[in-house]
């Protein structure tokens, strides 16, 4: 799917750019954004290293396992294919909580660590597992408790009550999150998604389907 979207975005840009005379701007944007991507990625090094270091201690100290056990019932529903004492559950929980608290700087490194743990269980390393897609759904449509960035902008631009959008944002983001997870769960049953499932043999077994 990303193949089509990526192709579509670039094709539309070139065609529309040619018609509107923006072609030079389009080319410049390509060069500029390629550089931006590297800046963003390299900017992650320090914070990544810090959190990966802390997480290693947490892992060896048994905290991650403890967290995994604590949310066993919830994890079984969301991630039926992951053993309930696997560290992936604990790191995913930490990422999700960090997201909800608006700790963006911690959430990304924790999320990437969780992806790393999920990848350990993946028999086909270049293809996303169902668990990864559900986890991504929880991240791309994360529940927001306090949308700090936009509140700051509202404050700056003279809102009488910059915080008044919290209730609407919490409600809307909760709807988004629940529907993204449900969508991930429903889409994984389509023949198209099943065909590329790295764990497809397990899923084909009837006993597994019943346990779902």
């Amino acid at each position: 799917m990303l193949n089509y979207i990526w192709f579509g975005l670039i094709l539309i840009s070139l065609v529309v750019g040619a018609f509107t005379g923006n072609l030079e701007a389009v080319t410049n944007a390509a060069i500029e954004y390629a550089a931006t991507a590297v800046t963003i990625a390299l900017g992650l090094i320090g914070i990544m290293a810090f959190w990966l270091g802390i997480m290693k201690i947490a892992e060896k100290g048994g905290i991650i396992k403890l967290l995994s056990k604590a949310i066993k019932p919830m994890a079984k529903i969301l991630f039926p294919n992951i053993p309930s004492d696997h560290p992936a559950i604990g790191t995913m929980l930490m990422n999700i909580v960090a997201n909800w608290l608006g700790l963006g700087n911690a959430a990304t490194p924790l999320g990437l660590k969780a992806m790393d743990n999920l990848q350990e269980l993946n028999p086909k390393k270049d293809t996303a597992t169902n668990a990864m897609v559900v986890f991504l759904a929880l991240n791309t449509a994360s529940i927001t408790i306090i949308p700090m960035t936009v509140i700051a902008i509202r404050q700056e631009l003279g809102s009488a009550n910059p915080f008044e959008i919290i209730s609407t944002a919490v409600l809307a983001s909760t709807c988004a999150c629940i529907s993204a997870v449900i969508a991930a769960k429903l889409l994984q049953r389509t023949p198209w998604a099943k065909k590329s499932d790295p764990n497809r043999k397990d899923i084909a077994e009837k006993s597994e389907v019943k346990n779902d």
Partner: peptide, 9 residues
């Protein structure tokens, strides 16, 4: 291969 992740998102 991100499979159905884009669609779900």
């Amino acid at each position: 291969n991100s499979r159905h992740a884009v669609a779900a998102g």
